[in-house]
C-alpha cells in the first residue's frame, strides 16, 4: 500500500534529515516508526503525508508515485488520513463539529451516516458530542482526532506520536483504539512513537531510525525481544 524507497529529505536549504530511507506498509497492519529525538521519524511521516516533498527517492501509494502530491490532495484523492501530534483538535468548536470537519467534502447524507456509525462505535465521545473540544481530556482529544480522520473513510492512517503528553492510562486507551481501528477496518496504519515498547505492543512491524537511516526493522514481537532495542531506549546505541 505504502512504499517509501531511498528517500532523502530535509527542510529548506538545510542538510538531509532522511538519508535514503525505505519503508513498506501494507493494508491491515500497524507499522510503527521509532527512534531517538531528532532521528527523522516525524520528517519521514511528513514526507509520506505530503507536507514535505522528498529531495530524492519515491513515496508511492498503491504503486503510484505521490512524492510531490501535497497533503490536502492526498487526503481528498488518495484516502490518506493524518493526525498531527499536538494541537490536533479545533478547541473552540464542539466535538461533533470537529468530527464533521473531517468529512466536509462528502455529501451530507453520507457524512451524517458515518457520523452516526462512529458515535455508536465511540460512546464516550457521543456522550460529549455537544461539548467544546477544549473541555475534553488529553486522551479524549486524541480519540476525537482519530475519529475525525476516520469519518472520511481513509484507507491509510498516519499518526504522529498519538501518545504525546498522555498519562499511561490514557495512552493505553488511545493505543487500544488504534489497534481496534486496524482490526475492524483493515486499514494501513503508520505510527510515529516515542513510547517504543507500548507502540511495539500493538504494532505488527517496526522501523527504528537513527540519524535519518533505518537502523533496525522487523516484526514488532521480534524487536520487543531484541536486547539492542532495550539498549537503545535505555541510553545505549544500536550496533548494527
Amino acid at each position: 500500500m505504502i512504499d517509501v524507497s531511498n528517500v532523502r529529505a530535509g527542510y529548506g536549504d538545510g542538510a538531509d534529515i532522511l538519508n535514503g530511507i525505505s519503508l513498506h506498509a501494507a493494508g491491515g497492519e500497524i507499522v510503527t516508526i521509532l527512534g531517538p529525538n531528532g532521528c527523522g521519524k516525524s520528517t519521514l511521516l511528513k514526507c509520506i503525508a505530503g507536507f514535505l516533498a522528498p529531495r530524492a527517492g519515491t513515496v508511492a501509494i498503491d504503486g503510484e508515485d505521490v512524492g510531490a502530491v501535497p497533503v490536502h490532495r492526498k487526503v481528498r484523492g488518495y484516502g490518506v488520513g493524518f493526525v498531527p501530534q499536538t494541537d490536533n483538535v479545533f478547541a473552540t468548536l464542539s466535538v461533533s463539529e470537529n468530527i464533521r470537519l473531517g468529512a466536509r467534502h462528502l455529501p451530507r447524507a453520507e457524512r451524517e451516516g458515518r457520523f452516526d456509525a462512529l458515535m455508536r462505535q465511540y460512546p464516550t465521545l457521543a456522550a460529549k458530542q455537544n461539548r467544546k473540544a477544549s473541555a475534553l481530556s488529553g486522551g479524549e482529544r486524541q480519540i476525537l482526532s482519530l475519529v475525525r480522520a476516520l469519518i472520511a473513510g481513509p484507507k491509510i492512517l498516519l499518526l504522529d506520536e498519538p501518545s504525546a503528553g498522555l498519562s499511561p492510562l490514557m495512552m493505553h486507551e488511545v493505543f487500544d483504539a488504534i489497534a481496534g481501528i486496524r482490526d475492524d477496518t483493515g486499514m494501513c496504519i503508520v505510527m510515529v512513537e516515542q513510547n517504543a515498547f507500548e507502540a511495539l505492543g500493538i504494532a505488527d512491524r517496526a522501523y527504528v531510525l537513527t540519524l535519518g537511516t533505518v537502523a533496525m526493522e522487523g516484526r514488532a514481537r521480534d524487536l520487543l525481544a531484541d536486547p539492542s532495542m532495550r539498549e537503545l531506549y535505555l541510553g545505549g546505541s544500536v550496533a548494527g
Binding site: P70, H72, V75, R76, G102
Partner: peptide
C-alpha cells in the same frame, strides 16, 4: 469562515483535513 479560522489557528490541521492552504 470556519476554513479561514482553521487556517489562522491550526494550518497544519487544516491541511490534514484536506484544505488547500
Amino acid at each position: 469562515g470556519l476554513a479561514l479560522k482553521l487556517l489562522r489557528e491550526e494550518p497544519q490541521l487544516a491541511s490534514s483535513l484536506g484544505y488547500d492552504l
